[in-house]
């Protein structure tokens, strides 16, 4: 479904990604784990067209999207929930959701999706007319995921959904990520520092170190790999 072929990404003169290649099949949950600064978020920004690669190619369903603008990429069905949630603080919860559906014109289906998400996250329904900035961290993460789902993405990119959340809330969020994957058949590419949780949720995983993919395997295999356990799982 999505394929990165040897992409190099630079911030000015500093190279953040070195020949990163990976592939995601339809219906999968794939985790990208690695330390702080390994290039995980950069990988997602390269896919979304915010940090276009200098070399290499990004393919979505076989078509190159490397040089497309961010809005064209959203239109194809790739939506990202960036690190730190980025809720519009002065827009209400309902308006934040509307922004997720910005490129859609089917008003009826949009309303139906909104109701479906309100059912999934009743707290959002309760707070629909409050500014997004008033929500707690966990509520903001739910809103950020819901807002991305309003775009009806076929591929959902999630950057650090556990960041800053209490363990109980994190479990809840990850349960919902699995539910979205199973019930709506949305393919998910998950970036996480919490490698343990990410690999328990995912089908497959990639390990990124200093901007290079150093390992890839089934999530269960990675979980039992001693090197991974030492470096990322704290076992």
């Amino acid at each position: 479904m999505l394929e990165l072929r040897g992409i190099d990404v630079f911030y000015d003169k500093i190279q953040a990604l070195h020949e990163v290649s990976l592939a995601i099949q339809p219906g999968e949950i794939v985790a990208l784990i690695g330390a702080n600064g390994a290039g995980k978020s950069t990988t997602l920004m390269a896919i979304s067209g915010i940090a276009p690669p200098r070399r290499g190619e990004v393919l979505f369903e076989g078509q190159p999207i490397t040089r497309l603008t961010p809005d064209a990429i959203v239109k194809l069905g790739i939506c990202q929930v960036p690190e730190g949630r980025h809720i519009f603080p002065d827009l209400t919860v309902a308006e934040n959701l509307d922004m997720g559906a910005f490129l859609r014109r089917d008003a009826k289906a949009i309303a139906a999706d909104r109701d479906m998400l309100y059912e999934l996250f009743p707290i959002l329904a309760k707070r629909r007319n409050q500014p997004g900035g008033n929500l707690s961290g966990g509520e903001q993460q739910m809103l950020a995921i819901s807002r991305a789902l309003m775009a009806r993405p076929r591929l959902l990119l999630l950057d650090e959904p556990s960041m800053g959340l209490a363990p109980l809330i994190t479990r809840q969020i990850f349960a919902i990520i699995q539910k979205i994957n199973q019930e709506q058949n949305t393919t998910i590419f998950l970036v996480e520092q919490n490698a343990n949780l990410a690999l328990q949720t995912a089908d497959r995983g990639y390990v990124l170190e200093n901007g290079r993919v150093v390992m890839q395997d089934r999530a269960a295999t990675l979980l039992s790999n001693t090197a991974i356990q030492k470096a990322y799982l704290g076992i």
Binding site: P82, F88, L91, M99
Partner: peptide
């Protein structure tokens, strides 16, 4: 719709881009 996009862009330009706002 345009007005919401204007407010969203003013509050968080990068996020507006990520949601498909030109």
């Amino acid at each position: 719709r345009t007005g919401k996009a204007m407010r969203a862009t003013a509050q968080d330009q990068k996020m507006a881009l990520l949601l498909g706002v030109n």
